[in-house]
Design a protein around this nucleic acid. Sequence first.
DNA 1: CGACATTTTGATGAAGATCAAACTGGGTGG
DNA 2: CCACCCAGTTTGATCTTCATCAAAATGTCG
Lengths: 255, 255
Amino acid sequence: MISQSNVASLIRKLEHCTVLSQEEKRALENACSSFRHLAPRTNLVSEGDPVQRVSIILEGFACRYRLQADGRRQVVGLLLPGDMCDICVCILKHMDHSIGTLSPVLASQISREVADSLLDHYPRLARAFWWSTLVEESIAREWVVNVGHRTAFERMAHLFCEIFERLHTVGLTRGDTCDLPLTQAELSDALALSAVHVNRVLMEMRHNQLITLRNQQLTLHDYQALRNIAGFDARYLHLDGTHGPSFAVAQEHTA
Amino acid sequence: MISQSNVASLIRKLEHCTVLSQEEKRALENACSSFRHLAPRTNLVSEGDPVQRVSIILEGFACRYRLQADGRRQVVGLLLPGDMCDICVCILKHMDHSIGTLSPVLASQISREVADSLLDHYPRLARAFWWSTLVEESIAREWVVNVGHRTAFERMAHLFCEIFERLHTVGLTRGDTCDLPLTQAELSDALALSAVHVNRVLMEMRHNQLITLRNQQLTLHDYQALRNIAGFDARYLHLDGTHGPSFAVAQEHTA
DNA sequence: CGACATTTTGATGAAGATCAAACTGGGTGG
DNA sequence: CCACCCAGTTTGATCTTCATCAAAATGTCG
């Protein structure tokens, strides 16, 4: 049996779309009762696979990525606790990208049948799931902007803001710090930069007292400054409904 | 009254997901009976707007874009005939990007109520609509790869392949040529390049006898070569079901 | 024709890639 | 417990791609 806390991030995230009843939450917990542990750097799904089930990240970091002909890879999105992997299952015939873990990951596995019945019985859940795919789409677009129009420094600042904000949403930040279990090479795949350059930018950020990144812990010493540099506008994350995290954090800092 | 041909691209596109009955097609045509003409470079929707209706592009080119603080804009997706603008309507509270026309556009307008009833009465249509949003998401991810990991030349080749392929899908290519009503400046917004550099790459492509682009007509003289250069793999467009256009075009060329 | 947008060309500069090598630290096996 | 190894990080030097600035050429439309 899985403890309630593991599904907590998922519920917490979905409630940014709509409030869920006790019954809906229980249904979610039941659906997530089957799960598996994955080592870092293993594939959850591979490009081209016909997909059979929905996975939900309960703990750890994963990413969506596409491999290039030359062997380089582009990470096209991060998956954090509470994020769903392949809702497309029901509709698309094959995966257009791979999903791999970055850190150790705990992921629930929902079979297609269970997923279908969940959506049929709880329209509000269906709506919340759809909402989460739309948010992901919005994030993908923001990544186009990020990679296309921002300097390395801005780009990295933006990624850090996004990660922090998203983790804050599901209650996984402590003060101004959060997990960041990525190597610099992995960061470079996500930012479309060389690993060497990622290193240099990191050094500069540290030198400017903007962040510390050590033992896979990222702390943002001046979130406001970072957001200004990045041109980070959290609206693309569509967290309108409830307590805006960036606001809350901004407050913490002024306090 | 609008002629059937205007909705043809939409139907043709959706049928890449699932076959539609006569009744479903008629319902679509009815829903699209209200429409408007838009001049080039006018906004269909603006970032931040609360959206009230779904629009469908029947003729012409439009794009999704985000404006940067410095005034530059990043086009984050193209909208071609048959594409829908704001299905997110029902779920998200505001638009996270703007939609603007590039050429003169004919767009249908479907009110929220009509859209809702359409989705309620015709589950297969609902499924096809969802499919089309997932394809858009896949395209957005491909754009991240494009802007992140490809050289200017490859990037432009890739965009041309995508446009040609998508237009082919809805029957809007003639042999190896199609419309491309974008200025070089607009291309540069989509490719995250400077307008000057777009010009130089275009010149080079012409010099290599790969394309002609004149009077807003693009013709691909060697589609296969272009695809190789771009590393273009049409699978991300999810056109599996039916007649694969790239295949058909490849055939034309060998003939 | 004349105003204006767009395309084309040239010259220079900057951001970041690439190559190479040294350094760090944790883990393993002898 | 030490020597070693390996993955990851850091630093330096050089080279490429593309941005930027500026100006000329071309085209379009009233």
